[in-house]
Design a protein around this nucleic acid. Sequence first.
DNA 1: CCAAGGTAGTTGACTTAGTCAACCATTAGC
DNA 2: GCTAATGGTTGACTAAGTCAACTACCTTGG
Lengths: 144, 144
Amino acid sequence: MSDVTLLESVFRLFHLVKKELHLQIDALGLELSPMHIRVLKVIASGACRTANDVVQWLSRDKAQVTRLLNSLMTQGLLAKTPNPDDKRSQLLALTEAGRAVMTQVEAIDERVIDKMSQDLNPQQITQFKSLVAAISRGLDAGER
Amino acid sequence: MSDVTLLESVFRLFHLVKKELHLQIDALGLELSPMHIRVLKVIASGACRTANDVVQWLSRDKAQVTRLLNSLMTQGLLAKTPNPDDKRSQLLALTEAGRAVMTQVEAIDERVIDKMSQDLNPQQITQFKSLVAAISRGLDAGER
DNA sequence: CCAAGGTAGTTGACTTAGTCAACCATTAGC
DNA sequence: GCTAATGGTTGACTAAGTCAACTACCTTGG
């Protein structure tokens, strides 16, 4: 466990985070995966109004996003309405049920984040985020 | 992009890391996935002598490990020999080809890690690792 | 104004990652 | 020496992600 590379740290961390997320999700009995939750969140927050927004925001493949949105729709959490600005596209909005689920999702998020940060002070949290941002910058450089 | 939770940062970071890893892997034309590489590494390092060691070390399901090891064997990179201490178990060792691939794997790792750390000074790298450790501690607490 | 190229979204087929349960063979503990 | 635990394998499954092909629409340059 002692000397682990940057790469290994990230793998281990992500695995723990996903596990914790799963725990909290089925503690509340939700039928959602982590990605479904992320999609709900970006729509609820107003950051994404169309499927393409979600694709951009989460940097995911549009095929994947289509399927995530469809399963949220068949679960009755999401509705698509025609986009007046572009007939190829539809506007996304949470249904009443979707908004209800969001309050549970917020509880899950809060618990996971609390657990992640319980050994950190606020300054360390900021520090962590800015280190992540710096690493991401490094990884982005030279692409595209 | 501005205010992102701890949770979101981790998701985004992991996604970037995996993408970079894929890029480097098929830049070298290797037929390996990130998990195969991690398994090769822990065996090459001497940290894991049996399948069960790998299970413990990487915190992965034993079914998954069995399959990873098998595909490394059919690729001729890994050999199993009977474990004299336990007839249920086999000792893992890289073949000649496996050791050859490891030198390429090391190159990949180095490139990815270099890219991740190009905007960081050595102190920040240490800092990041210790923050990851602290977060992991928080997530582990209360389990088991 | 209209053809050509680009964009939004969908679908099919696929790979990788991970999980759960059942099962064998062996080993360890009383 | 029987029972319970352990190491490993297999089957069946879900989640996550990728690539290519395709439809329908939008945009632009001649």
